[in-house]
């Protein structure tokens, strides 16, 4: 965790709704607020359909926000108008995608894929400089120079993800959104990519938004973690605190659900097993959205939506159990 807590991004009440038809609206992200500090890795976790990918894409302005704002170094991302400024902004934010098979153009050579951003932003003067820069990037992510003239299909999943990372780094971004960058890879390859991302962060002072559903990897790579459920943020904490002392009942269930690679522990561990499925985000439950599956749900949970409050320093939670007014409920 970087010692200075300078905000790189400030996300305020961000909403992204998709209109499905005349009557129904899918509220994929429905009012989330958090900051991302300079040089940190902010992990975003949650189950499929919770809105974590949509949140990442809306922050990058790949989607226009329905409401709320994203301030990037003091500037509202969604208010940038002129083409020149948008280009400048695009350079500072890059993305690494989940599927290394679908996210690389099969008809382009690796060096053209990596240099596409360099060309668009006119970052080099001569073809020689371009080749040098590409080679440098290939080496940076652990590939060889001669890989540059090959095509994506000649590479394994892990190598392709390295190409995707080189492409993202090509324009010297400050901030990278990594959307499930390791989910499609084998365990031993996952560790390689995670180590690479960590090393690059250290050497280049990058800030990451790391989106994933695998909590153990997220805990390993992140300084702070935000947990989402049905379009809402339910808890934010430093990654250690989140794992050792989860506050929100959903976070507790999520952590308890991860099977630990330790048979003796698994045999004795008490597990919280949630009942049922995640409700539809088109028609979410009233009050707290988690109440239909919450083992600690109280009367008030169906009536009043819990407030997003700072429980203690750097610790945010949205749950009535931590609200003075409704506290009489069991805090077990």
């Amino acid at each position: 965790m970087p010692s200075t807590k300078e905000k790189l991004l400030e996300i305020k009440d961000l909403k992204k709704h998709f209109k499905l038809d005349r009557k129904s609206i899918l509220k994929a992200v429905d009012g989330i607020s958090f900051d991302i500090y300079q040089g940190e890795t902010f992990g975003l976790v949650g189950e499929s359909g919770c809105g974590k990918s949509t949140a990442g894409r809306t922050i990058m302005r790949m989607y226009e926000a329905t409401d709320g704002k994203v301030d990037f170094v003091g500037r509202n991302v969604h208010h940038i108008q002129s083409k020149r400024e948008i280009k400048e902004f695009n350079k500072s934010m890059q993305m690494i995608f989940q599927d290394p098979y679908a996210s690389l153009n099969p008809r382009m050579t690796v060096k053209d894929i990596i240099a596409e951003g360099i060309d668009i932003h006119g970052l080099i003067k001569s073809p020689k400089e371009r080749a040098e820069r590409v080679n440098e990037l290939l080496e940076l992510v652990g590939l060889n120079k001669d890989h540059g003239s090959r095509f994506p299909h000649e590479f394994s999943g892990g190598q392709r993800q390295r190409i995707g990372i080189a492409r993202a780094l090509a324009v010297n971004p400050e901030f990278i959104v990594a959307d499930e960058p390791i989910s499609a890879l084998d365990v031993s390859i996952q560790a390689q990519i995670v180590n690479l991302l960590k090393r690059l962060q250290k050497d280049h002072g990058l800030t990451y938004l790391f989106i994933a559903h695998d909590l153990s990897m997220v805990k390993h790579i992140s300084d702070r973690v935000g947990v989402m459920y049905l379009g809402k943020m339910v808890e934010i904490a430093k990654s250690n605190e989140l794992y050792h002392e989860p506050l929100h009942p959903y976070t507790r269930a999520l952590i308890s659900a991860i099977p630990v690679p330790n048979p003796q522990l698994e045999r004795t561990r008490e597990r919280i097993i949630l009942e049922g499925d995640v409700p539809s985000p088109v028609n979410p439950p009233s009050g707290c959205r988690f109440r239909t599956r919450c083992p600690l749900a109280m009367d008030v949970c169906s009536r009043v939506e819990p407030e997003w409050q700072e429980y203690k320093e750097d610790r945010w939670v949205a749950c009535h159990l931590y609200d003075e007014r409704y506290k009489e409920g069991s805090l077990a």
Binding site: S156, G158, Q159, D186, V187, S188, I189, Q190, A191, Q192, V194, N195, K198, S216, M217, K219, H220, N240, Y243, I255, I258, V260, P261
Partner: peptide
């Protein structure tokens, strides 16, 4: 290698153990 490349929830590790190369 397999056991080493799993992140552990209970302890802090700077770097994950890696199996270099590919299958």
């Amino acid at each position: 290698g397999l056991l080493g490349s799993m992140p552990k929830l209970d302890i802090e590790e700077e770097e994950l153990q890696v199996i270099p190369g590919s299958p």
